[in-house]
Write a protein that binds this DNA or RNA. Structure first.
Lengths: 201, 201
DNA sequence: TTCCTTATAGAACGATCGTTCGTTTGTGTC
DNA sequence: GACACAAACGAACGATCGTTCTATAAGGAA
């Protein structure tokens, strides 16, 4: 890895955790230059524009998410076991990665949902891809016979997203110590309602 | 109402709908002055600081929320009917009010959850108050015998918040035409799971 | 070492930020 | 109409924003 790639990665690391706290929109070249002990122009040259820097941060976030949340779960057998692993990794990934201020993309989703442009597109595509992954995982749990065959997969994913978002808010804004427990309880209720009934009595 | 109060309200109206699109943190005195056809200093004098303006917007949002979401529902009998009304009003209130870019406070929650200060406190208190209202409403549905007596009220409210947040995201970021339907389906599933079983067979 | 490329620094640009100040305009009261 | 007070303006402040330019320093291949 050349010198350029190397420092670019250092910048991205810093931008990543900074954006976690103040949002992708709140990133500033000057502040980032200070934190990395570089000149503004030197840092700027690596990206060409502020927007490109922001996009790079969003792509970095996607990459780490795939490595930390999705990939480890792929080693488990398809079905509920894998789905459960993804959900747990998902809920914990802000702790696993260097995300002192919560998921970058999720915050960016609320920030840019009304501002058309490349940033909104990037966020949108990232979350659409995540939903697709979740949908496939749920569909496999239907295929294995663990979830009912008439399961509304899209609805299932919809509700999963709700659980994730309220958990983030409860943790970050309310400092609710029960957030994780409640999230898992909501997930259990979701799975139970869609689960195949094995025995009648 | 004196002249001062009058223009202050004009400013707040504009700031309110602007903040809906770009966030409370993205508000700027200059832009707001242009939109209201005032000078920066003239507008500034009404609030004394930018932060005070932002706080005023958040308080304005709380007031409108109470009028549009909670109050109309209080005319319905306590219990599931009232809870249902609140949820429906809640999901629709960005359409009812002048909120082209979604709920101001909810966006601010994601924006300030990592930045200590008066703004975070205001958002936090607003959402805590909402959760308290929701909890009381759910508790009354338990009291009327419509929901099971062992209902975990906090869990119920937790999941309600999840439904609200994912609905906002689905509508604003994904332009999902099914968002409202899915939200109501999730709410129905929530109520059904906690409802008292009337007949056994 | 030599040479070319890449990476970083430094200074400056125009724009916008929130804020302050002094002045002018407007409103309401005696 | 005169007066007191509130409201709005216009100009300017220092700071920071993203960006551009030119020049210096470092890196890597021959």
């Amino acid at each position: 890895m050349g010198k350029g790639e190397q420092t670019r990665q250092v910048i991205l690391d810093e931008a990543f955790s900074l954006a976690s706290c103040i949002g992708v929109g709140g990133l500033s070249i000057g502040v980032l230059a200070d934190r990395t002990h570089m000149s503004k122009s030197g840092l700027f040259a690596h990206f060409g524009s502020k927007e490109e820097l922001q996009l790079a941060v969003l792509r970095e976030s996607q990459q780490r998410f795939a490595e930390v949340v999705v990939r480890p779960a792929l080693r488990l057998p398809r079905g509920l076991a894998r789905l459960h692993a993804i959900v747990v990794n998902w809920l914990d990934w802000t702790k696993t990665c260097n995300l002192p201020g919560g998921c970058v993309i999720n915050a960016a989703a609320a920030e840019f949902d009304d501002q058309p442009g490349p940033l909104r597109d990037e966020v949108r595509n990232a979350l659409l891809a995540l939903n697709r992954t979740l949908a496939e995982t749920v569909a496999k749990a239907v295929a294995t016979g663990e979830l009912r065959s008439d399961t509304d997969v899209e609805q299932f994913v919809f509700e999963l997203n709700g659980i994730y978002q309220v958990t983030q808010q409860s943790r970050r804004l309310f400092n609710d110590p029960d957030a994780d427990r409640r999230a898992l309880a909501a997930f259990d209720r979701l799975v139970r309602d869609y689960a195949v009934i094995h025995a009648k009595e």
